[in-house]
Amino acid sequence: MKYDFIVVGHGLAGAILAETLRSRGSRVLVIDEPKENSASRVAAGLLNPVAGKRFAKSWMADTFIPAADAFYDALEARYGQKLFFHKPIYKVFSSIEEQNTWMAKSAGGNWGDYILATHTQSINQPGINDPFGGIMIGRGGYLHVFAMLDLLTEDLVKQNLLLPERFDMQELQLTESGVKYKSMEAGQLIFCEGYQVIHNPYFKWLPIQPTKGEVLEVQADENLAPERIYNKAVYVVPEGAGRFIIGATYDWRNPNEETTPQGREELSERLRQITPQKFEVTGQWAGIRPAVRDRRPLAGTHPQYKQLSVFNGMGSKGVLMAPYLAQNFAAALADEEELMPEIHIFRYLSLYYEYIDQQNQQP
């Protein structure tokens, strides 16, 4: 069987890229080993246009957000199912110093509809501990990532375009016209493996740092206002009926998929700083994100083997970035436009040459 592309991995990045390639008329085969605790499937799917203690607008938010809205809207229209929930984000100030930092930052910038309101005092909402106030962020929300992945997976299965197995590198052959994997051929193979790329002999030179993240599901005694997301060191995403997703931890020292009592207590304590309400932990999950040294995604063809490409490194911002970057990458693969230099793997070409030298020096 012949395809235009084989995509390895069907997490958030791989699924959005495969869908983008298919929407352009390409025949795509996806190879993916089903995992319930992949980073994409345990993520809350948060889209936050203003992040961090320094109150910086997310990189290229003006470009990424319209592309993300259009992509998720199109999926909702096709499947008749709500997937992306537009919600303001109430970022609670943790101190008067943080409030002052924001006031100085906001005075010199054009924030448009990203900032709906600035509160220098508590908004007096029952169940919220915000003595220093906070900012109400617009254009945010969250994606039901697992629901989207399930719908796209079902589509692939119906069309016999999904091979549900672990990719076996020993079965990969590079040919003059592309690649061959078992009995299947394609012009291009794209690795969207997340943190597993560190084991990939063709792309292990890329600076991916596996970073563990734990999240909690909690049930609150009283429902916090479900029309917004809350943020103060952790995010609090309302799922309805008093249910919330709390996350996430960041642990690069122990990159495994095991939940821990320490993660549970860290997230619980941070939630207590946001709300005095009693809550019960009803679920806990862990996944491993592919973090990149410069916090920019990784995309591009291999320096030597042009049949092989990579699309990876979205970290915790895949919901925001992946739709636009998948469009750009797909167009670049078709020689229709240039791949964004900020995400091109050639920015790390020196690491590739170092890797090759090390391989050549081995006996």
Rank of each mutant, 00 (worst) to 15 (best):
E33A: 11
Q170F: 02
G242S: 09
A15W: 06
T249P: 02
G45I: 02
G14I: 07
L83W: 11
Y3T: 14
L152R: 05
L298I: 14
I123P: 07
T259P: 12
K306I: 04
L29E: 08
T101Y: 02
W285G: 02
K182P: 01
G112H: 14
M184S: 05
A248G: 14
N231T: 11
N124Y: 08
Y324G: 12
A330H: 03
G141E: 14
D150I: 04
A43F: 02
D221V: 05
Q262R: 03
Y324V: 13
D113P: 11
W205Y: 15
Q307I: 00
G240C: 08
V310K: 01
F93T: 09
I343F: 05
R27Y: 14
D150L: 05
V215W: 01
P126L: 07
N129Q: 08
Q99Y: 04
S58R: 01
R54D: 13
V310S: 05
G240Y: 05
M103S: 15
I190T: 11
G25M: 08
L83A: 09
N223M: 11
I65L: 11
N110F: 04
G287P: 01
F167W: 07
I208T: 14
I137H: 03
A117Y: 09
L29Y: 06
A56S: 12
A225E: 13
L206W: 10
D168K: 01
A331R: 06
Q307D: 09
P131K: 00
V215M: 04
S95L: 14
D62E: 12
A39N: 00
V218H: 05
A233Q: 08
E258T: 03
R243H: 11
A107C: 15
R139G: 02
A15C: 12
M321D: 08
G134Q: 08
F329A: 14
I288N: 00
P126F: 13
W102K: 00
P261M: 07
A291N: 06
T118V: 15
A241D: 15
V237R: 00
R295W: 13
L46P: 13
E227Y: 10
Q81N: 08
Y235Q: 08
I6A: 04
L152W: 01
E227N: 07
I198H: 07
Y142T: 10
L271R: 01
D69E: 15
V30K: 00
L17S: 10
G80Q: 11
N110L: 09
R54C: 09
A220F: 01
T259Q: 05
D4Y: 05
I288V: 11
A104Q: 10
G108Q: 07
R347K: 03
A241L: 10
S23R: 03
F132W: 09
E222Y: 03
P303W: 14
D357H: 06
Y353M: 12
A322K: 02
I274L: 15
E227R: 01
V310E: 04
Y72F: 13
H144F: 12
D357R: 04
T153Y: 04
L75V: 13
R272D: 14
G178Y: 03
P207W: 01
D150Y: 03
R228F: 13
S40W: 04
L267Y: 02
M169L: 15
G313V: 10
Y324R: 03
T63Y: 05
S94W: 03
Y230L: 13
A286S: 15
M184N: 09
